[in-house]
Simulated assay, not measured.
Amino acid sequence: MEKLRQFEKDSEICMYYECEPERFLGAVIPPTFGNSLFLYPSLEELGNAVKDETEHYVYWRGTNPTVEIAEKKLAALEQGEQCKCFASGMAAITAALFYSVKKGDHVVCVSHIYKSTVDILKYLQKFGVEYTVTQSTSPEEIEKEIQPNTKAIYIESPTDMTFKMVDFEKIAALAKERKIKTIADNTWATPLFQKPLSFGIDMVVHSASKYLGGHSDLVGGALITSSHIMKKLFKKEFLLFGGIMGPYEASLLLRGLRTLPMRMKAHEENAIKIAKFLEGHPKVARVNYPGHPSSEDQEIIKKQLLGFSGLLAFELKDASFKAVKAVINNLKIFKIGVSWGSFESLVMSPNYGYNTADLKKEQISEGLIRLSIGLESTDDLIRDLEQSLERI
């Protein structure tokens, strides 16, 4: 019942929060403020605005009314104090990391995270920042990787590709004891199904290109945190770096948020049925999906997740590249492509035939296939998977 009440409250935020028609001449949706700058009647008033761009509209690289509505919605959904929207998920991730570390610092990455996030950490090495990736999601094992100069712990939960859960509450507690910042990528669950800040995480990042946008026509990102952190981050990692979201992209994000609750329920329903089908298939060795009873992380799932998205993976018993590409290339409804979280169903694998050594190092099965379950008929999607699996 508590989960249902929260979902209903969040649905109201997605549709109506900060979008009152009386504010915009009765418009049922907010207008898109496409102007690059804002005018003031006097130099003194402009000067006061420039002094605090977080509270005044000056130039859209800082604050824009359309973008601001999306930011306030996301902050409310994540139960955070402030949000800033970025030009991409990577821009948001980069801002969070650059805010958290300096030369001589160290970052701990928990288990499998988005490859481009690892790439930005590799890039930070040229500035004297080091990082460690632990394959374990155990708080005890994560704690062992903490060094005297560790200043940030970076988490995706569920983890990328393997979809293991990470206990936010325990990680946040051990980090706070050591004054370490915690950053969580919450793109998989969305703010509807998981709220990391409520468990003590310092910063939450999103790729708005996925479920928040939901239509494969938007690239964007978001960072939600406390007012204290945002006040510092706004002036440098946001304003100076310039990786901001424009008002036209924000209008697409607002459109996506209006239907987010019903889309997430549909993604969840479809994915649970498909996970059940795959679990019983003789050619499937394992299903990686928190929404399936076979998940090993039931205690964390019950505490942390309010629902399940449509991104999952399964591992073939025949883990050869030949089998992987045969399954993927023979699918008809599932389209081959990167990204996920939109209306269309997608398929891909981290196994490209030339990187098996990397997969072994990362403890990812060579037979892993990732599915983004869209909004098509579940029966049609299952039939598509069935005919393709018969080819191996």
Results as ranks from 00 to 15, higher is better:
residue 128 G to P: 08
residue 128 G to M: 08
residue 129 V to Y: 02
residue 130 E to K: 14
residue 130 E to N: 15
residue 132 T to H: 10
residue 137 T to P: 00
residue 138 S to M: 05
residue 139 P to V: 01
residue 139 P to R: 03
residue 139 P to W: 04
residue 142 I to R: 00
residue 143 E to H: 09
residue 143 E to C: 09
residue 145 E to G: 02
residue 145 E to R: 14
residue 146 I to C: 08
residue 146 I to S: 07
residue 147 Q to P: 06
residue 147 Q to F: 12
residue 148 P to F: 10
residue 149 N to F: 08
residue 149 N to H: 14
residue 149 N to C: 13
residue 150 T to R: 05
residue 150 T to L: 01
residue 151 K to Q: 12
residue 151 K to L: 03
residue 154 Y to M: 12
residue 155 I to A: 00
residue 156 E to M: 13
residue 157 S to D: 13
residue 158 P to C: 03
residue 158 P to L: 02
residue 158 P to M: 01
residue 159 T to A: 02
residue 161 M to T: 11
residue 161 M to F: 11
residue 161 M to I: 15
residue 162 T to A: 05
residue 163 F to A: 04
residue 164 K to R: 15
residue 164 K to I: 03
residue 166 V to R: 00
residue 167 D to C: 11
residue 169 E to V: 09
residue 170 K to L: 13
residue 170 K to P: 02
residue 170 K to H: 11
residue 172 A to W: 01
residue 174 L to M: 15
residue 175 A to M: 09
residue 176 K to L: 10
residue 177 E to N: 13
residue 177 E to F: 06
residue 179 K to D: 15
residue 180 I to N: 05
residue 180 I to Y: 02
residue 180 I to V: 12
residue 182 T to V: 12
residue 185 D to T: 08
residue 185 D to R: 06
residue 186 N to R: 03
residue 187 T to K: 05
residue 188 W to M: 11
residue 188 W to Q: 09
residue 189 A to V: 08
residue 190 T to W: 09
residue 190 T to H: 09
residue 191 P to L: 06
residue 191 P to H: 11
residue 195 K to D: 08
residue 196 P to N: 06
residue 196 P to E: 08
residue 199 F to D: 07
residue 200 G to V: 07
residue 200 G to C: 02
residue 200 G to K: 04
residue 201 I to S: 02
residue 202 D to I: 11
residue 202 D to C: 06
residue 203 M to C: 12
residue 203 M to V: 15
residue 203 M to S: 05
residue 207 S to M: 07
residue 208 A to P: 05
residue 208 A to S: 14
residue 209 S to T: 15
residue 209 S to C: 11
residue 210 K to C: 13
residue 210 K to Q: 13
residue 212 L to M: 14
residue 213 G to Q: 06
residue 213 G to C: 04
residue 213 G to E: 03
residue 213 G to W: 04
residue 214 G to C: 10
residue 215 H to G: 02
residue 216 S to I: 07
residue 216 S to R: 14
residue 218 L to Q: 05
residue 220 G to W: 01
residue 221 G to W: 03
residue 222 A to S: 15
residue 222 A to E: 08
residue 225 T to K: 01
residue 225 T to Y: 01
residue 225 T to R: 00
residue 227 S to W: 04
residue 227 S to V: 10
residue 227 S to R: 13
residue 228 H to S: 13
residue 229 I to T: 13
residue 229 I to M: 02
residue 229 I to Q: 01
residue 229 I to R: 00
residue 230 M to V: 03
residue 231 K to S: 13
residue 232 K to C: 06
residue 232 K to R: 14
residue 233 L to K: 07
residue 233 L to H: 04
residue 233 L to R: 00
residue 234 F to K: 07
residue 234 F to G: 03
residue 234 F to T: 02
residue 235 K to I: 11
residue 235 K to G: 13
residue 237 E to Q: 14
residue 238 F to T: 07
residue 239 L to F: 07
residue 239 L to T: 08
residue 239 L to N: 05
residue 239 L to C: 08
residue 240 L to M: 14
residue 240 L to Y: 12
residue 241 F to W: 12
residue 242 G to T: 09
residue 243 G to D: 13
residue 244 I to K: 12
residue 245 M to N: 02
residue 245 M to K: 07
residue 245 M to A: 08
residue 245 M to R: 06
residue 246 G to F: 01
